[in-house]
Amino acid sequence: MVESLLIETRNLTKSYGPHVALDDLNLNIPHGATGLLGPNGAGKSTFLKTMLGLIQVTSGEGSILGYDIRTEGEEIRSKIGYMPEYDALNPKMDAIYQVQYSGELLGMNPNIALSRAHQALEYVGLGEQRYRTVETFSTGMKQATKLACALVHDPELIIADEPSNGLDAKAREFMLQTLENTVRQGQKSVLMASHLMEDVERVCENIVLLHKGKLAAQGKIEDLKAIDKEVEIHVWGHATKMEEGLLDKGMKVRREGRVMRVRYQDDSTYHTILSTAAKCETQIRKMHDHEASLEDLFLVIMERLGYDVKGSEALLGDLS
């Protein structure tokens, strides 16, 4: 009846002496792509380590892919591909051999590891560059290589820690596209820790938001986005008149120059907008439902939790 969950934890707690890094987490993460969000110090890395079976939990339990994190760490790590945030490659090795080695470390035969390495590097777009040493690579290429190392054994779950960190627009686009492809075409699950909302929104259907070790939000992104809907319009000519006209009709309007957002009441909202425009002789060059972004969602959640946060740059947080 219950479709199996990717990750499940019950009262998961991890303390280092008096400091509680993970506080009574009850997570239900389904298969598919999930974003792991939260500021530095929220417990993201501790959480990932417990998932990888590398640190012992203080209390509570958890399972990942059906394996108990307390006792079956080795199995877990054979079935997961991990893409770390920082440098994790030997700069003097050729990409192909680095990926081959990472496969051998899993127990793959050297020649099988080599052919998988070719496939993985091809997949991440480094087919032409695989015989170059890692130190000659740009950041984007290094990230892609790390991803290839994580994919070499075709794991069920890929854990990516800040995969688009430090990438320029083009490389970032490609990385996200690759991750998306892995989820959709490869039918793999991805757990993506990131502070870049746009990226998470693009790749993931679900999110888990941690804050100070506690769970602040979890669920499907579209379910969480029940923010008051607005209709955004771009007008041309007599904008002020248009704004007044709408206000007269009792609509709630926000305006920035030629761009306005009208609070959606019901389907008649569009008609109200257009009739007001007709009356004011204003052109409505664009009209569409404004979709709240994940960034907006995050800000609202943090506000609700009582934190004064200016933007999700707070996730880059603590520079001490």
Partner: peptide
């Protein structure tokens, strides 16, 4: 574009997006 809103409203078209 000048004519569009009045045409839509006058003939009661149900429009929800313009781009």
């Amino acid at each position: 574009h000048n004519l569009l809103p009045s045409i839509i409203v006058k003939n009661n078209h149900h429009v929800w997006e313009i781009d």
